[in-house]
Design a protein around this nucleic acid. Structure first.
Lengths: 123, 123
DNA sequence: GATACTAGTATCCCAGAGGATACCACCAAT
DNA sequence: ATTGGTGGTATCCTCTGGGATACTAGTATC
């Protein structure tokens, strides 16, 4: 049996689902173990070479760092500049656009922080 | 060669890394393909049975829905109530605490939305 | 010539995410 | 007694995220 209310719900859920798509787009960009740490490090450092960034982020392997940086670059959050030095160095930096993530990351930080406290209390 | 500045940077990154942990905690809770859609559906529906929720979320399999709901329940975002009806029905609902995610999800939505537009313009 | 720095690539491997399909027990209506 | 509703589990599969390890090419230093 299908009530009138359920039909309305499904119609509204369709509108809702386009919003969910946007949320999932955002989540996808920050997905994975390393993107947030990399963005965080770059916001802090302003600019950094590959190896320096690797040391800064921690245990990340060059393969993963390379892969994550490529994705962040594709999304215009990070800029890669090859410098004509000897030896050739590469400069990674966060873009102006990349800085727009800060508010999102800060919200996630705040929620995560209070959530940690709540979980601790109960366990 | 290690300059004084680099040592300072590494010290500050250590403070930064605890903040990154909180962000990653938050991301972990929303991770996966289905958690946000489920939370969204439950915020909209207020309460829902298992099958109804499955229909609402879309293509999710019962295995995944069951698994994701368990995780959300563990994190106190979702409440599961068994009702003494015939046949036995189960009511899933978002908790008051679960509603605190709304601001985080809304930030993610806003950023994701404007990001979509930006990507479209350039491709 | 050996070592160490730069910026990565290549290869192999494993665990977990998530889909497909089938199935369970229970109950109600036809 | 068959069909269809409830709320799930079980099994099998594939694909990818991500780690470990090794390697390349170029330059500078010891």
């Amino acid at each position: 049996m299908k009530t009138r209310g359920q039909e309305d719900k499904q119609k509204t859920m369709k509108d809702c689902s386009t919003k969910i798509l946007a949320v999932r787009d955002a989540l996808e960009i920050f997905s994975g173990k390393w993107k947030i740490p990399i963005i965080g490090a770059l916001i802090y450092l302003q600019k950094s070479g590959f190896k320096e960034l690797q040391r800064m982020v921690g245990d990340i392997t060059p393969k993963m760092l390379s892969k994550e940086l490529k994705e962040l670059e594709m999304n215009h959050l990070v800029k890669r500049t090859v410098l004509d030095t000897r030896p050739v160095t590469v400069q990674y930096s966060i873009t102006e656009y990349g800085k727009t993530c800060q508010s999102v990351i800060f919200e996630l930080y705040q929620w995560g922080e209070q959530h940690r406290k709540k979980i601790k209390e109960e366990c």
